[in-house]
């Protein structure tokens, strides 16, 4: 699944204040705790961010 979303975003609903940036209507559902398998290059990149307390962007620098 490539995330180049080749679709058009709909216009805002009429109730939308034009100067608003974001609005939270609900938070995401409760998460569940799961173990990641500590293997592979992507996990190791994740572990590096986690251990150094870095965000994705900080990690790229």
């Amino acid at each position: 699944m490539s995330l180049t979303l080749d679709f058009l975003l709909p216009p805002p609903p009429s109730t939308w204040a034009a100067d608003a940036t974001t609005a939270n209507h609900a938070s995401i559902s409760a998460t569940s705790e799961r173990l990641l398998e500590p293997v592979g290059p992507h996990f190791l990149a994740y572990a590096r961010r986690k251990r150094h307390n870095r965000t994705f962007s900080e990690d790229e620098r």
Partner: peptide, 20 residues
Amino acid sequence: CVHPVVTLTPHTTKHIGTLN
């Protein structure tokens, strides 16, 4: 790296997406 402090993480329980 293999310690649960690193491997135990919160996972979403529902799909998150948008409407086209």
